[in-house]
Amino acid sequence: MLYRKTALRAAAPVAVLALALTACGGGDDKKSDDNAKSDAASSQAKPKEAPALAAGESTTGKVKEGDGTVTYDVAAEKVDLATEAETKKLVSDPKRAEGLVAATAHLKYTHKGGAPLTDTPDAPDTTEIYADGARGGLLIGAAEDAAGCEDKLDLEGWKKGESHVLCETYLVPAGAKSLEVHWAEKDGADPAVWKLPAK
């Protein structure tokens, strides 16, 4: 396990520069810059509408963690927006970030039930950020270095009663009017949705 953590940490500086667009058809390095940008901003079919939560309000979900299931209380606290200039420093090809800004969602997870984790948590992996109704493009590895965010590689052994703030960073259009943070128990499940102001 120590080897795995060390290897992942060694890869982190490169991951910060890797832009992975999770929009439909995104993430292909052979695409033109214009196509990459449009993928991040294009409209897509949104998940089933759920009652919106406000910043700090929580939902409860059960997540498969290793060989067991952990019950988490999850609350999206805020989304920090970078400037366009700051965002260009986070990607390997600044042209791909033209007109986009990095949005970092801060979610507080509280272990409410189940066995202590034996590996890094999977709970934050289903976090997504939408801007003006369109899903952004995932920026891999940037969230761990953001202020107020913890590195999930440090959380092996997380047990009942402990809370940690884990983050995800997405690229969204600069000037977006509204932001939503989505989190689900697992891929394909209806997400909890927090509607947050774009700041």
Rank of each mutant, 00 (worst) to 15 (best):
S163F: 10
G113A: 15
S42P: 01
L171Q: 02
C149I: 10
E86F: 10
L117E: 03
L138K: 14
D145F: 10
S92W: 01
S92M: 06
L166P: 01
K160N: 06
D119C: 11
G175S: 14
L179Y: 07
E65H: 03
G56F: 04
T83N: 06
L166K: 02
P51M: 14
A147P: 07
G175P: 09
K177T: 09
K46S: 10
E150A: 15
K88A: 11
G56V: 04
A105S: 07
G133L: 10
Y130R: 04
L138R: 13
D125N: 14
H164S: 06
A103N: 01
H182R: 08
A40K: 01
I129S: 04
K37M: 12
K48F: 06
L153M: 09
A85C: 08
S163E: 12
P94Y: 02
G175A: 13
Y72A: 01
T59H: 11
A105I: 00
K64I: 02
I129N: 04
T83H: 05
V165E: 13
V181I: 12
C149A: 13
Y130P: 00
R96K: 15
G114C: 11
P121D: 00
D119F: 10
T59V: 15
D151V: 05
T127V: 13
T118R: 15
V165Q: 14
A45N: 05
L139K: 10
A134D: 00
L81H: 09
A76K: 09
T120N: 06
G161P: 12
P47T: 01
G68L: 07
T59A: 15
A55R: 11
A54G: 09
D67M: 12
S92I: 08
T59L: 06
T59N: 10
T83E: 02
A146N: 03
E98Q: 09
K160W: 03
D154M: 08
S163H: 11
L100M: 11
Y109G: 00
D67E: 12
